[in-house]
């Protein structure tokens, strides 16, 4: 994932005949990485599921979650996937202005989501649910925190892409870089799809 290959960089390579499979190294590497991330988030979600019921007297999901608020921020993150994919398709057309526009929109939506998460965390802490309060709180903050860190890394990558594009260093041949960052971004979105359903919406105590 480190970098483009020289062949691509010099712009004379035909993607289809470069590698044994026709998939570029960078893209394959990103997919492998995402496959590995499934096990990471799977472990965190499992931990959360095992610990989601609070002990008597402790605050649990029912007491703290504000589903309305989280639904809106989930929607925001979901829509950022659309802007991301439109950004990718703009650069494939060679429309650099729109690429920047869509990428900026994506990063902004990501930032809105992240601010929502920070707001949510502060609200929970104010209600008296700190990181060390219960097994539920530790598991909840760790799972959503890991996701938040992934969103942050994604935003940093998007901003770097926008800056590169402004400086003219993101030519149409490198559209794949946008695609690969997009893959990461969609993955982060997918993980939130899981978290939104499993953590927030499925009622605690329901026979799962």
């Amino acid at each position: 994932m480190a970098s483009v290959t020289v062949a691509e960089a010099h712009g004379h390579a035909d993607h289809a005949h470069e590698t044994n499979t026709g998939i570029s190294n960078n893209k394959l590497a990103m997919w492998l990485f995402l496959g590995s991330e499934c096990l990471l988030f799977g472990g965190l979600i499992t931990t959360y599921l095992v610990y989601k019921t609070p002990l008597p007297g402790q605050k649990g999901p029912k007491e703290v979650f504000d589903i309305g608020f989280t639904s809106v921020s989930s929607f925001v993150l979901l829509m950022s996937s659309l802007t991301m994919v439109l950004g990718h398709s703009a650069i494939e057309r060679g429309d650099h202005y729109r690429t920047r526009l869509w990428l900026t929109a994506t990063a902004s939506l990501g930032a809105v989501f992240l601010s929502g998460q920070i707001y949510e965390f502060t609200a929970f802490v104010k209600e008296g649910m700190g990181y060390t309060s219960s097994r539920f709180s530790s598991a909840f903050y760790t799972l959503t925190g890991f996701h938040g860190v992934h969103v942050t890394v994604g935003i940093i990558m998007l901003v770097s892409l926008i800056l590169l594009s402004i400086r003219g260093k993101l030519p149409t041949e490198r559209a794949e870089t946008v695609e690969i960052v997009g893959l990461y971004w969609h993955f982060v979105d997918i993980v939130w799809v899981l978290i939104f359903a499993v953590v927030y919406l499925i009622p605690v105590g329901a026979p799962v």
Binding site: M1, A2, S3, V4, V6, E8, A9, H10, N26, A29, M30, F33, V149, V153, I156, M157, S160, L161, L164, K169, P171, R174, T177, I180, V181, Y184
Partner: peptide, 13 residues
């Protein structure tokens, strides 16, 4: 996250 950010490499010189 090392590998993620590094992916943004510039085109080769």
């Amino acid at each position: 996250m090392a590998d993620d950010t590094a992916m943004l490499a510039l085109p080769a010189a």
